[in-house]
Design a protein around this nucleic acid. Sequence first.
DNA 1: TTGTAGGCGTTATCAT
DNA 2: ATGATAACGCCTACAA
Lengths: 342, 342
Amino acid sequence: MQDKEITIYDLAERLNVSATTVSRGLQDHPAINKKTKKRIFDLAAELGYRSNKFASNLRKQKTNTIGVIVPRLNSLFMSSVLSGIEKIVNNAGYNLIISQSFEHESKEKTNTTTMFNSRVDGLIVSLASDTEDLSHFDTFIRKNIPIIFFDRVAESIQSTKVLIDNFKAGYKATEHLIQQGCKKILHITGNPSRNVYKDRFEGYKKALNDHHIEFDPALYISNDLTEQAIQDALVNDVLKRDTLPDGLFVTNDSSAAFALTIFKEAGLRIPEDIAIVGFNNDLISKVTEPAITTINYPGNEMGESIARILINHLDGEGDLSFTSTVLLNTELIVRGSSQRKK
Amino acid sequence: MQDKEITIYDLAERLNVSATTVSRGLQDHPAINKKTKKRIFDLAAELGYRSNKFASNLRKQKTNTIGVIVPRLNSLFMSSVLSGIEKIVNNAGYNLIISQSFEHESKEKTNTTTMFNSRVDGLIVSLASDTEDLSHFDTFIRKNIPIIFFDRVAESIQSTKVLIDNFKAGYKATEHLIQQGCKKILHITGNPSRNVYKDRFEGYKKALNDHHIEFDPALYISNDLTEQAIQDALVNDVLKRDTLPDGLFVTNDSSAAFALTIFKEAGLRIPEDIAIVGFNNDLISKVTEPAITTINYPGNEMGESIARILINHLDGEGDLSFTSTVLLNTELIVRGSSQRKK
DNA sequence: TTGTAGGCGTTATCAT
DNA sequence: ATGATAACGCCTACAA
């Protein structure tokens, strides 16, 4: 029982002009008489006309749509990035399709295919934790559809990458712990084949080295950073050891919060017995007791950079720099979980 | 320099069959010879053919796309709902467009228009906090495009609504505080024109009444539940009062966490001086010290219900019950922030 | 400033 | 089991 859709032909007929004129009028074409335009717009509004994107896209061979694939949307960081992207992209007249890989390569692959079949004009990706094979992006590369990676980037693919200096951030976090007097710093992090985790780990090692602390492989734990994984690592392993660490650098804030809870339950004092540094400056880092020292991550700014670069590229400007890497600044936010000295 | 797109005509030509046959073959039409099908699929794969959704949608007048508009994606609850919706919807062969209103009516309106122009087959909505005027949904209603509201529903619109029994949840939360010995229970909540907040408030009042505690308007605060708003309400108002409340029921967990932090900084003991109950069972409620008592909200289940109802409707089944209201169960999860007695 | 005509790629209808 | 044809609604050369 749906109303019949109004087309430009219906408008044209009632206005006694051609469909072409209506089409042009609707797009504010300069060659159309102002009065005619007004009549067109008025009638369109009155009849509830809506442009048919499918016909338009079919004809123009362009969708004005940008696809985004992220691991998960449930962090402050990701929502900020998305919000930054959306703002820029909307202003430029593009639409956004967002999908989550839920940290799985297989979901990422099907999402990529869906995006491809939806003919997005460009793709923005942060990789799933366990993605190894990158062949699902080949179709985009072959068709010259631009891909921008951010945060968790694909190092082997030639394209623009927007991220923070994870090495430096890892270095800063670790150095801070060392300055608080920590000597045995546990590092819990994600899959080291992801750049973010690898680079932070390198930063961690470099900081140790620069301060003449030998890297102890037993103090390096890599898992999927879920609540369960943190629980396992700490309760079934770390807390059973003869010598406990005196510092923890863990690469996201919810994991830091879980760890903090577990340590406190085990009767350890934070930061006196173990000083903790997290990552991301997520909401959760502020409300634990003590609050968690963390690395602030400029999500909104990152989102806006990404969107600007992509749109400039799509609109045919700034093409030269499209395969560059953009590094954004981070800062260490010191809170109670690590502050032993005034 | 994009490759030329392969169409069914290209396939048809090379296979010496008609485009019609190729189209049918690709859709696994029963009347097509198995061998022909195989030849079609093989060649399609070889040439990297991809179906053109725009042409297909244009012709079929159906998009197989479902739109979702939510206030924000940054809570565990919302991600669970989305994940539930996506699972069901994907299995049924539909795609999802997700957008956020960021709690603003104006953004919600433009999102709704975008969805409308994208010709979604159905719309799933949880209202922004400040949405008063609902006329942006009129276009959908007029065209008989189904809308399902969940969580924050539009009471005046006839459509399916999926939500929890907020009245009961509010009642349970309040009653629990009363049972812990609270007499002056502060209630901080969102915009009361949203059903979720209104109903929880009603439940709160009913519980007070049933336990012969008079409702004190000074103990009711309505704001936008941001960190800033909680801070303002507590620091500039509540904590300056002569008599402090001895209980707090606040309708989301991050607000509960902020409040807990503020109270502790003010030297109050939780739960002895003030017992706290939050809402949603978000991650954050587990890691504060003490952990926060909260109402568990079945996000995944809610998402799946929503998607099933919508798809049944779109596929022409279960039409009769389309304007019903589905209530899901909740449970109170008692944690340290409210537990005064063993 | 406006109009004509053709085509974007698919699928439904009717025919064979 | 397969084909021919038209139509979905829009846009853009080209023409007037």
